[in-house]
Design a protein around this nucleic acid. Structure first.
Lengths: 209, 209
DNA sequence: CCGGAATGTTAATGTATCTAACATTATGTT
DNA sequence: AACATAATGTTAGATACATTAACATTCCGG
């Protein structure tokens, strides 16, 4: 029933997905989210009004693209976590670097995912943000490092914020302009190691209220 | 010559600035940057075409608003730095908290300043981003803490990234959804303290290439 | 006080989103 | 198979906004 060959030329057969793909391509090509609805429709081979049978409005199409992006991020995150020893420092660092790479390799999708004050982000998207994978890695690291009684949720947020912030500043070329030839991956790694060193030094510091 | 009373009703007298103010207000009210050029014009009491005598296009008006926002951030940053002992850890933390407050108090301006992949940011804006103030605070702290031979530029970027990332995740309500009742200021403070602890523990770690 | 530069106005123009009315195809029921 | 109906497309606007063109008024330097 998902075989588009069953449809004639009048009905597309899988316009919903075709529009998501077209929109993603256009975002990639334009380098931003400012493509025209009609352009996506044309690329999918339908008239400019057809998309509205599948998406309430332009925003809804963007939501759908964002959801796909979150799923891709989640997949990447899981793959990275799976290829590093659970509880290792290298796993946490690899997760951060993967996040950094995801953002900087697809800067066009950043706004889609995190921009607009996050109005587009759903609970489902957050579950696909890789955060829970990071939190698990942090928990495992705390156990392995014999750091007990830590607020792993808070730790994960702090580590995430560091990677996110660096990704953000790297993406909009802010880091480059302050540090020529900056290696953001090296920055993230050393920043993370310093932070974890700090935890080892003073593990009892809790942050939740 | 800046006295608008010298002008009659036909000429506004200070439309350039009035438009910047109107745009800022509209951004604040709409909660985003999606106001109409004509709306800003109406608020300034002129016709919808008048703004184009002062700004090439809508983008140019947004640039101008962003520049004002950067100047405000710079001023805030300098004030905070001046009210804390130079070289103190509290100064670095206060700077981070001020940054966090600036972003979360005016979330509408975030996209304007850092969004759109930072295409709007000029060199002048960066000088007004508060970064150099932070870098100076970090340098002073390193001296006071007898941590020598450190890459203060890199350290400042790392600290900035942490504050920026947390601000970003707080602003789009991502942190809230993972941690109910999260106190982002407390998170930033403990994160920063842990990081500085890590530096004290292992100060020789350098990151530049 | 005159002439040009600035700055405003009104009236298009072009483009984008979205809707309305209508056409065609798919699907499920008898 | 034949029909009813839902789903999905199409064309032709309606509306909103950015921007420009042509023209009007005011400011300011000589």
């Amino acid at each position: 029933m998902s075989d588009s060959k069953r449809y004639g030329t009048y009905h597309h057969g899988d316009l919903h997905n075709a529009l998501i793909v077209a929109a993603a391509e256009l975002i990639e090509e334009h380098g931003s989210v400012d493509f025209a609805m009609a352009e996506a429709a044309r690329r999918a081979g339908v008239s400019s009004a057809a998309p509205y049978r599948h998406f309430r409005d332009r925003e809804a199409l963007l939501d759908a693209v964002a959801q796909v992006a979150f799923i891709a991020l989640d997949q990447l995150t899981r793959d990275v976590a799976a290829s590093h020893p659970r509880g290792s420092e290298s796993c946490i660092i690899a997760l951060g670097k993967a996040y950094l790479g995801f953002v900087t390799d697809h800067p066009q999708f950043y706004d889609l995912m995190w921009g607009d004050q996050g109005l587009r982000i759903t609970e489902r998207d957050l579950a696909n943000s890789g955060f829970y994978v990071l939190q698990d890695a942090v928990s495992a690291w705390c156990e392995a490092t014999e750091i007990r009684d830590e607020d792993t949720l808070g730790l994960a947020v702090k580590l995430w914020a560091t990677a996110h912030g660096l990704a953000c500043l790297a993406m909009n070329r802010t880091v480059d302009r302050f540090m020529a030839d900056a290696d953001i991956y090296a920055l993230l790694e050393s920043s993370t190691r310093t932070f974890l060193d700090g935890l080892r030094r003073n593990p009892a510091e809790k942050t939740r209220l």
